[in-house]
Amino acid sequence: MTLLKHEDLLKAIFDRDSSDALVLTPLLDKGQITEATIDLRLGTEFYVLRRTLEGGLDPRRQNQNEIDDLHERIVVPIGGNIWLHPGHFLLAATLEYLRIPRDLSAYVLGRSSWGRVGLIVATAIMVQPGFTGSLTLELVNDGDSPIRLYPGSRIAQLAVHALDGPTAFGYGPDGKYKAPTGPQPSRLAKEAHEIEKFQRVKEAIETRLSTGNS
């Protein structure tokens, strides 16, 4: 994999056909394309986890709707702001809608100016070839002071890598518009079957001697 530098990024964005271009829209300012990354801006939608009196997140016990219901959607228009307090967590999305062609992949990284005040921007940082949509950002204030966030701010950066060639299958929407346009709550409920399986594995471990299948 080769990291795309400024000129390569410009070519991938502006010189390719619509069908295989690297897309970032709206690209408000070409200055967002730096030496070897592209600055990404903070979008206008957020999810916060509701406080609850009935426990918390449990991917084994809760279905996806129940997990979704633990989140509250907040819209902060351009010009507004939202505070992130120390230790608090917020799901956000990039202002830009992206499409990564099948011969590229990317990594989302924080920007040092935000990192130095304690803001962690993304934990799930790999963007697969073929990804289409706004990127969900997991924001955590790891500093000691509350941080005021403004939609539109350059909050993250995208490092784009060229693959050896296009992947056969992308992460794409397969003809349906499933591309996210805002932050996406966790899809942890999809993991429930595997957690259940490990419960059965545990039982199998415990009963292995009595059934003689050691």
């Binding site: 829209t25 709206p26 408000l28 300012d29 206008t44 351009i78 202002l95 809608y97 706004s134 539109g152 349906k176 518009y177 499933k178 591309a179 346009t181 805002g182």
Partner: peptide, 22 residues
């Protein structure tokens, strides 16, 4: 019934306004 498509269009309406204002 294409709810995801309509969210996509709503986002386009929002972003075109943002870009025009910018």
């Amino acid at each position: 019934r294409e709810r995801d498509y309509q969210r996509f269009i709503a986002k386009a309406l929002e972003m075109s306004t943002t870009f025009r204002a910018w």
